[in-house]
């Protein structure tokens, strides 16, 4: 059989093999090499990366003898990897300023739309700042979200200085006693020095109005992202003070395993997940649920038990 057709064959079996190995894990007292290899493969295909995956496998080997439920042990290890303190920031005086950043097309603007709905539901008064003044119709896109949710919208149109828009929005919020400002920044690749400097400037200018702001800087990562996600997180963290991750597009088949590497190496907590394009499709991150989803055990249990 040719190389290409073999691959096509093989892929058909991905999902089946995941269930198979979970089953084997549940029933085996000890882990054999084949099972371990399959688990490692499962972890790598979640985009966790080779390094993190082999670390997990090492831990599993160490602890396997001490436990009679390897699957529970595996889950425990994965949960531990994600366990870092995620503190909600509350400024002494409103407004709370949240800046949303990330590479192109990850879901920043959509996440801001969803977030503003959450705050409004809590009875908060929200201001959206259209600081993506570069991409075509980015301003209009955010405006539509502000209308959907019914919140204030601050913009200076396309081509304006993003820092000036941010200054406007934060000043407006402060003087009008608003509770939350959400800053929508343009997508930018972490490799573009001038764009990263621009982001720094936006944050610097915000501090002129409120020295402790932005209180939160959320980095939006697309769940389909591979190993570059770690590089992105590292670079954004070097530039601005990232306080949390939003992992979007988890409603697809991508598992978002890259966040294990990000949390482990950079210590940034995952705060929200995006599970669709609609206004209510944003959830607080829950590591238990996430670990179940990575291992595909939810479906397994539904089907088999």
């Amino acid at each position: 059989m040719g190389f290409l057709s073999k691959i096509r064959e093989g892929l058909k079996k991905t999902r089946e093999s995941i269930f198979k190995q979970v089953r084997r894990l549940l029933s085996f007292e000890k882990l054999d090499d084949e099972t371990l290899e399959e688990i490692e493969e499962l972890l790598i295909t979640s985009d966790m990366g080779v390094k993190t995956a082999s670390e997990v496998i090492e831990k599993l080997k160490e602890r396997a003898n001490k436990s009679d439920n390897p699957l529970e042990t595996l889950k425990e290890i994965l949960r531990e990897l994600l366990k870092i303190d995620s503190v909600e920031k509350h400024p002494e005086l409103p407004p709370l300023v949240i800046s949303v950043v990330g590479v192109n097309g990850t879901g920043k603007t959509t996440t801001i739309g969803k977030l503003s709905k959450r705050f409004v539901n809590e009875g908060k008064k929200v201001v959206l700042a259209a600081c993506d003044t570069f991409r075509a119709a980015a301003v209009e896109q955010l405006k539509i979200w502000s209308e959907r949710v019914g919140v204030d919208f601050i913009s200076q149109g396309q081509g304006a200085d993003p820092a000036a828009v941010a200054f406007d929005a934060v000043s407006h919020a402060k003087s009008k006693a608003k509770d939350v400002v959400l800053i929508d920044t343009a997508g930018r690749l972490h490799t573009k020095h001038n764009l990263m400097e621009e982001l720094k400037k936006v944050h610097r200018v915000i501090k002129k109005v409120i020295p402790e702001a932005p209180h939160e800087v959320l980095l939006v990562i697309d769940a389909t992202t591979g190993q570059n996600g770690l590089v992105q997180a590292r670079k954004f963290m070097e530039t601005v003070d990232i306080t949390g991750i939003v992992l979007t597009k988890l409603d697809g088949t991508a598992k978002g395993g890259i966040v294990f590497a990000i949390v482990r190496e950079l210590g940034i907590p995952v705060k929200y997940i995006g599970v669709g394009e609609s206004i209510d499709d944003l959830r607080p991150f829950n590591s238990d649920e996430f670990v179940e989803a990575i291992l595909g055990t939810e479906e397994f249990e539904e089907n088999e038990v």
Binding site: D47, T224, G252
Partner: peptide, 14 residues
């Protein structure tokens, strides 16, 4: 297709 896509690209492309 986004160049940064990881392991799942095979599923969507297929």
């Amino acid at each position: 297709v986004d160049a940064m896509t990881g392991q799942d690209a095979v599923n969507s492309a297929k």
